[in-house]
Design a protein around this nucleic acid. Structure first.
Length: 334
DNA sequence: TTGATTTGACCGGT
DNA sequence: ACCGGTCAAATCAA
């Protein structure tokens, strides 16, 4: 049985969905074009259209990846999943003095095939909601600006193959041309926002959010269905005393600018705060469930904790997320 | 101390 | 041989 790598959607259905999404995106683009005069006077309308198109594109790319994953095809990097695990072999000293045997993988397909140019976007910011790690920078012949190379932070811990290339725009150096290559296969909590953004999808029907903060979590959170959201003031004891321990099985999902010290333990106090309003959450027992995947994501503006029973593969089911704003600004959208 | 960035070297494709 | 993508030691920063 051929199915997507997440084991959720049969490929034949995925193909049909891709077809529908393509038509929907095409229609949205046409609609945007037709409404361009209205969009000029009401930029919000244009923004909404852009978001719709973006969501469709995002869903499409995920499904395309899903479909591609089911087809036998060339591997991205010579089929080696651990091609750069050579650090342990080169213990110390200059690399120049260390001849590398062909058999260790260095002779493998090191350069990515140019047959897959990736998806290029122009952005004023490098932020896109993902956590990237820079691994190189090169002066490019055809450009006056250097090109920077980023890989997903979770390349090693989750074998995520996503990379991006960032280059300042030739036309407008204040903007960046960002080329995304490969799909994220990691489960970065940043994508929780994308899930939360889609209140009508199946994904959120089983998700829960507790948001602490002086104001609503942000505009994203306003879209969450009422029955799965609990708003409450930030407990003072969590602001201070609760920050010293981080014994959860926390993945390295911290965004730049954050620190491990931002993590905190959710305890019985929170369970008491949640109370019967959110009886589906057995907060007191969460930290005792060792087979539960959990992750923590923090940024200068918010802290989120996600808990997924059993494995990341079941992200869509019984997913729980906690978060609160440190400030009452809108959460950065990317 | 640990994780991220820098930067020259290495390597494969053209 | 050249170009561009990636590696990894050195360095930086928190």
């Amino acid at each position: 049985m051929s199915s997507c790598s997440q084991g959720q959607i049969p490929v034949d259905q995925a193909v049909a969905v891709i077809e529908n999404l393509n038509q929907a995106r095409e229609g949205a683009n046409q609609l945007k074009d037709l409404l361009k005069d209205i969009i000029k006077s009401k930029p919000t309308a244009g923004k909404i259209m852009d978001e719709i198109i973006e969501k469709l594109s995002s869903s499409l790319s995920k499904l395309e990846c899903c479909k591609a994953a089911s087809d036998p095809g060339p591997t991205v990097r010579g089929g080696s999943l651990c091609s750069d695990d050579r650090r342990s072999e080169i213990s110390s000293g200059k690399r120049k003095a260390m001849p590398i045997p062909i058999s260790d993988g260095r002779g493998a397909n090191r350069r990515r095939s140019q047959a897959s140019p990736g998806k290029t976007v122009i952005s004023e910011t490098l932020e896109d909601g993902r956590v990237w790690r820079k691994y190189g920078q090169k002066r490019i012949q055809s450009s006056s600006h250097d090109r920077s190379y980023f890989r997903c932070t979770h390349k090693h811990d989750q074998n995520c193959q996503a990379t991006r290339q960032v280059q300042k725009s030739e036309e407008d150096p204040s903007k960046y041309n960002i080329t995304y290559i490969g799909e994220h296969t990691c489960r970065d909590p940043s994508i929780f926002h994308q899930i939360i953004d889609m209140p009508d999808t199946k994904e959120t029907s089983n998700s829960f959010l507790i948001s602490f903060g002086q104001t609503s979590y942000n505009n994203h959170m306003k879209t969450i269905r009422q029955e799965t959201q609990v708003q409450m003031p930030m407990p003072s004891s969590l602001q201070s005393a609760g920050t010293q321990d981080c014994s959860e099985e926390v993945l390295s999902n911290l965004t730049p600018g954050s620190s491990p010290a931002d993590c905190f333990m959710l305890g019985d106090e929170l369970a008491a705060l949640v109370g019967p309003t959110c009886h589906a959450l057995n907060v007191g027992s969460i930290r005792d469930q060792h087979d539960m995947g959990s992750s923590l994501h923090s940024s200068p503006r918010s802290i989120e904790m996600g808990f997924m029973p059993n494995s990341f593969a079941q992200l869509d089911q019984d997913y729980m997320l906690f978060g609160f704003d440190k400030e009452d600004d809108d959460f950065p959208t990317t």
